[in-house]
Design a protein around this nucleic acid. Structure first.
Length: 235
DNA sequence: GGCCAGGTCAAAG
DNA sequence: CTTTGACATGGC
């Protein structure tokens, strides 16, 4: 995808700045300190379990896995599918996700003996490509793993991000790569900022955009509607 | 009871 | 190449 097609839309006096939104969100909500997990492998597991699923449904699933001692690549790779399914049932799509978790674990085991330190020594792009090759790991899951588990400077795009950018008039593009480059071009190369920014966008999407007078997709409704608020208006 | 959630993949059109 | 359906539970 050429950069030309990723151009952001001018708004008012000039292009709206990605960093302005970050500062506004950080000022309004404070640091979120994502990802809520106990160690990198738990981040990876959570990244799969939370696919199109509320985090409140993921928590019991992670707890059950932990209870059964299944939160290591070796244990998960060797566990019966039925046992994994039972443990993660609350997270929804549990049959799909059980298979995905086990496939991911088997891969980590065979490539690096389950040692994530070794896994994360892999060059970022190379690791990203390998993650994407696993069935059930798409761009958002791969990048969440890279950013929050591996500590690589990769910006995560999710459905909230797409809606919010459209809502604030920054861009109407929805293409993952376009939006990712938009953030990465306009931010300092800083893992903590990437982590914090994505967390804040999710918070805005959940708590803020849900308080809406209209129906769904508040973040996509027209500027000037009743959805307009102090926070977004200030940006 | 309906709508939605921190997506992804495969099958159609 | 773009659109659509399947996957599934739990909270509001």
């Amino acid at each position: 995808m050429s950069d030309k097609r990723c151009r952001i839309r001018p708004r008012g006096a000039g292009p709206f700045l990605v960093v302005d939104l970050y500062n506004a969100l950080l000022g309004a909500f404070g640091p979120q300190e994502w990802w809520p997990a106990d160690g990198p492998f738990e981040v990876m597991v959570g990244a799969i379990l939370t696919q199109n699923t509320a985090w409140t449904n993921v928590e019991p699933a992670v707890a059950a896995l932990k209870e059964k001692g299944l939160l290591t690549p070796r244990a998960l790779a060797g566990a019966p599918l039925a046992e994994i399914e039972t443990a993660i049932r609350s997270s929804g799509y549990y049959r799909q996700k059980a298979g995905r978790l086990r496939e991911l674990s088997a891969w980590l085991l065979s490539e690096w003996g389950g040692d994530l330190r070794l896994t994360f020594q892999e060059p970022t792009l190379r690791l990203r490509t390998k993650l994407l090759a696993i069935n059930g790991i798409g761009p958002e899951t791969a990048d969440s793993i890279l950013l929050y588990a591996a500590g690589k400077p990769v910006f995560v795009i999710d459905a909230y991000t797409v809606r919010i950018l459209g809502r604030v008039g920054l861009t109407e593009h929805t293409d993952y790569g376009c939006l990712q480059r938009l953030f990465e071009r306009n931010l300092p190369l800083d893992i903590d900022i990437y982590r914090e920014y994505h967390a804040l966008l999710v918070l805005l999407g959940k708590d803020f955009c849900r308080r809406r007078p209209e129906k769904s997709n508040c973040c996509a409704c027209p500027v000037g509607s009743r959805c307009e608020t102090g926070l977004l208006a200030a940006v």
